[in-house]
Simulated scan of single mutants.
Amino acid sequence: MFSNLAIDVALGLIFIYLLYSLLASIIQEMAARLFNARARVLTKALRRLLEDDDRSGDLGAFGRFTFFNWFYELGWSVVYFFAPFQHSPFLKKFYQSPSIRYLGENSASARPAYISPQIFSQTMVHLLRGTLEENQSETAAIRHSLTYNTLQLAPDTIAHLRNLFEDAHYDVDRFRANMETWFNETMTRASGWYRRQTQVWLLILGLGIAAVFNVDSIAIARILMKDKNVREQMVRLAASREPSYAAVTDTLTRKNIFHRDSSYFRQDTSVSMMLKDTALIGVYAILRQDAGDAKNVLGISRDCVTDTTGGKKELRCGFTHPYQKNGWMVLAGWCITALAISLGAPFWFDLLGRVVKFRNLPPQQSAANNGV
């Protein structure tokens, strides 16, 4: 076995980051389900696809700056949260189509979190052709709708649909295939939007968790470097929890809570891939217990003590560890923890596995691997 101070300290920190990253991911997933976040991102993608949703021009010269655009988009996100079809008449009609409306789970989650490319193209064809008149072909009906823009589509959207129809040489099946390709390209971008949104929430949750649980990276690193007994206990705790965390991480990845690629909106997560909320709560309880064990090993906590200085009894609450006397250093330690949590549990789990594997190598083999 190969072991030294730096590796053991790194192993302890990685275990802490993995533990609280898993905890943050579970909380974020619960919040995402509560607010139907996936369905909202899908609606945003369809709005961009079908309604030319680009309002950066409203800012004038300020629209060139990312800073102003970010706040502007944030404002519209609040508007769309309460009124998802604001200024989007065709999008509302799209969601009211039977093929889309009945994909929602229930009245509280009326909009689906996933639409297949085939359902998208089928719904678009149904809307474009409308009710066929006697002896009218489907191709003629779609061509008439696109030529005269009977659905009042946005300029860029109708122009693109006309191009797709012409590229298909007015063949409906090829037109559907072209629309499915268009849809898939947009869903790839939507997956990136959701991942970035998740990372922002993990950063916010990470800071909250660091403050609530007092996960001070700077103090933890100092404790692990100075106290051999604590360091050994943390290493044993990390080694004992790695197999169970492997099962949890694998399950959450398969259930699509963790995203290792950009294929989220191409998988049917509405039924077979959904993890029940009771299971999430069970995993949360296990992680809370592990967090308590790690906290006890490290000895970092807040407490209230009675101060009798000056002959008066005063109850003072605050940090009890000598490495947490400087409030600014504690805040910096929390911020480091939040940034680490935002990297996600899969990153820390993979890193933990590599460090544990390296640590368990015989000294001669580890030296050979390093070219010594």
Rank of each mutant, 00 (worst) to 15 (best):
A291Y: 05
V248N: 02
K276A: 08
D268E: 15
V212R: 14
M273R: 15
T278V: 07
G311W: 04
Q199F: 03
S191Y: 00
V248L: 08
R288W: 15
L205F: 02
I281S: 10
R196L: 12
I281N: 09
M225S: 04
A239R: 02
C304P: 03
R302L: 14
T251V: 07
I220Y: 02
M274R: 14
A294V: 14
Q289E: 12
Y323N: 05
I281V: 15
A239K: 07
T320E: 06
T251I: 06
Y194H: 04
R316D: 04
E242A: 13
C304I: 03
E314V: 02
N214Y: 05
Y284D: 09
V200R: 10
E232D: 13
A211Y: 08
I281T: 11
R266F: 14
K313P: 07
A247H: 09
V200P: 02
K295H: 14
S262H: 08
R236C: 05
R222Q: 15
D227E: 11
T249V: 15
A219P: 04
R302I: 14
G310N: 11
A291D: 02
V235N: 02
Y245L: 03
D277L: 05
V215G: 05
T251Q: 13
T309C: 05
R260N: 07
I286T: 13
G206S: 03
I257T: 13
M225I: 05
Q233A: 01
L203Y: 03
Q289D: 08
I209Y: 07
A279P: 08
D307R: 01
I286M: 10
V230F: 01
T278M: 06
P243A: 04
T306A: 11
T306E: 13
G292R: 14
L298F: 12
Y245N: 03
L287Y: 02
I286V: 11
Q197S: 10
D227K: 09
I223A: 03
